[in-house]
Amino acid sequence: MPALGGFLWLISYWLIGEVVIHFTALPISSGVIGMLLLCATLAVRGRVPSSIAAAAQPLIGLLAMLIMPGVVGVFFIAGELAGQWTAILIALVVGTLLSVLTTLWLLKRLIGQPSGH
């Protein structure tokens, strides 16, 4: 079972992240530390070992399902946030539109001219 070995790597990196956070009090989640460690390890080795690919690929495919229990929670806090929803929605919609405009404008200035002109 190569996937099992890969899974052990992923869990170990996550646990290392926990230990790092405990001792440094960095305001980062252990998942992000583990992700950066994994990326660095792969960069040093210059390739993705098949055991890690076998564990990582299906887990990434399952991400949507893994966050579902949390997503469902939003329907159960709807009542607590009554009266706040308009502000939240305006902030998200207008904020996203402004942010998309800024991103595209910046990218256009920095990366290149549109290809079709």
Partner: peptide, 11 residues
């Protein structure tokens, strides 16, 4: 499993 799945994004 979200923990190891986040680590997996390093790939």
């Amino acid at each position: 499993l979200l923990g190891p799945a986040t680590v997996a994004l390093g790939m």
